[in-house]
Amino acid sequence: MKIKLTLDEKYREMVEDIRSVNNPNCSYYMDNYTEKIEALTRSWFDSADIYEYQVKVIERIHSADEVQFIEYNYKWRLKSDKFRKRYIGIDILGGVLFFKQPEAANNIKKSEFKKLLEGTGLPFEAFEGVDIDD
């Protein structure tokens, strides 16, 4: 039976790291990708013994026949807390707006957001994508 995984683009670096070795050292990955592995563990397994299932997550990623990455929509905001209006929105003419409340911001894919910033002088590195539920 073939194992095919579909994961958010944010897991790409971790997945490529895990799949690049013959025998993954689970403790290394749990130390270096703690939040990402815990998030996948909670979404794939319903168990109180999270450590045992984190190992299974790493093994599943390592043994997968195919891994497909998809872009999800995020709300984008300025990384600095010094700005009161830091969440990004788009007006009907395609202009960039800043909002104080995250619920007022638009959900945008990373590639779409980078394209939106072109020609604005705003560096992509000044922003961060936050999960829609944040």
Results as ranks from 00 to 15, higher is better:
E9D: 09
D8A: 08
A104D: 15
E13V: 06
E35Y: 10
Y29G: 03
A48S: 15
F83G: 03
H62Q: 08
L97I: 12
Y29R: 03
L117G: 06
K75F: 12
R84F: 11
P102W: 05
L97S: 11
K110N: 10
Y74F: 10
N25R: 10
S27A: 10
I92D: 15
I108E: 08
W44P: 07
L78A: 05
I70C: 06
K2L: 10
K110P: 14
Y28F: 13
G119R: 07
K85S: 12
T34Y: 15
E13N: 12
R12G: 06
D131W: 07
E118A: 10
K79Y: 00
E35V: 06
K10W: 02
R86A: 01
F98T: 07
D8I: 05
P123R: 08
E128L: 00
D65H: 06
I18H: 02
I132H: 07
E103N: 10
D91Q: 07
T120V: 02
K10Y: 09
N23A: 12
Y51C: 08
G95L: 10
I92C: 13
S111D: 08
L122Y: 11
S80K: 03
A48Q: 15
D81A: 10
N22M: 09
G89R: 06
Q101I: 09
N107Y: 14
E103I: 12
L5A: 01
Y51A: 12
H62K: 11
I132K: 13
P24I: 00
S43H: 09
T41W: 00
K85W: 08
L7C: 03
D49Q: 09
E16G: 02
V130A: 05
N32Q: 11
L40Q: 02
L117E: 02
I37R: 02
Y33V: 00
Y53G: 02
H62P: 00
F99G: 04
D134T: 11
K10V: 11
A104G: 08
W44D: 05
G119K: 06
E16K: 02
I3V: 14
E103Q: 12
K109C: 02
Y33M: 00
K56H: 07
W76S: 04
E66T: 07
L5H: 02
F124K: 03
E125A: 08
A39Y: 09
V130I: 14
D131E: 14
M14W: 02
F98E: 06
F99L: 01
G121V: 03
L7Q: 04
R60D: 00
D131K: 09
W44I: 05
K109Q: 10
I37N: 02
V130T: 05
S27T: 13
F98C: 05
D134S: 14
V15S: 02
I18N: 01
K115V: 06
V67Y: 01
M1P: 12
D49N: 12
V67M: 01
A64F: 01
V67L: 00
R19M: 06
V96C: 03
Y53K: 13
G95E: 15
